[in-house]
């Protein structure tokens, strides 16, 4: 039942000029190529997987990582890549608030997994923050793709954080084969970079004017 509260009178209809302007704008837009959000999911997921593969290739080629070491981290790597792809899909699909909340749970589970699967680890000669900085660095390209894609939909903080967490899986995955330090190091220096990428995406996307306000 509608409460008996008066509302302002119906506004005047839009002027012919305003209607003509809107018509001209969308007629012009019709001539431009349009990309599906599914293509966006492929682009964003492809960037995450691509960066991880390129960094792995570089580390293997310079001898900073071995195939044996890489295969010993196969479980966590597979989990992180899967979470990255699923979270990317959840962040870009229309509506899907529940999916985004579930993907937050998946990220938390993956974060717990990479900490718990890491043993005592070894001591590195490099400062520990090098991991944080390098993870932020490898997360920049997926973060940029996520920010561009987020402009094609209505601004939404949860969506932006989930997209940022998806981009952040890149650094977390690189940390699996690029670092052999302890669980404590992973919990502090790897997870902070992951959260950092998420916050970066959420902050930058909130400052940009969207191209579309579709849900």
């Amino acid at each position: 039942m509608t409460p008996d509260v008066p509302l302002p009178p119906a506004p005047k209809p839009p002027s012919a000029e305003a209607l003509a302007k809107a018509r001209a704008a969308f007629a012009s837009e019709l001539t431009r190529p349009r990309r599906s959000w599914r293509t966006g999911v492929l682009r964003a997921s492809g960037t995450i997987v691509g960066v991880v593969v390129v960094v792995a290739g570089v580390l293997l080629s310079v001898g900073a990582c071995t195939l044996d070491f890489l295969s010993s981290r196969a479980v966590t790597l597979a989990a992180l890549i899967t979470v990255g792809v699923v979270t990317t899909w959840a962040s870009l699909r229309p509506r899907g608030r529940v999916g985004r909340l579930v993907s937050l749970g998946l990220v938390a589970a993956a974060a717990a997994l990479i900490v718990l699967m890491r043993g005592a680890g070894t001591v590195s000669e490099l400062p520990e923050w090098v991991c944080t900085v390098s993870h932020l660095g490898v997360g920049l390209a997926p973060a940029a793709v996520a920010i561009v894609l987020l402009r094609n939909m209505a601004p939404n903080r949860l969506r932006a954080i989930v997209a940022g967490l998806a981009a952040g899986t890149t650094g977390a995955a690189v940390g699996e084969f690029g670092c052999a330090q302890s669980a404590g190091h992973v919990a502090v220096f790897h997870l902070s970079a992951w959260v950092g990428v998420a916050l970066l995406v959420a902050f930058v996307s909130s400052k940009l004017t969207p191209r579309s306000y579709a849900p």
């Binding site: 305003a18 704008a25 837009e29 349009r34 599906s36 959000w37 094609n152 579309s212 579709a214």
Partner: peptide, 13 residues
């Protein structure tokens, strides 16, 4: 205008 531009740009959504 923005609303209908969004319809065109995001028809697949």
């Amino acid at each position: 205008q923005t609303t209908f531009l969004s319809v065109v740009r995001s028809a697949d959504r």
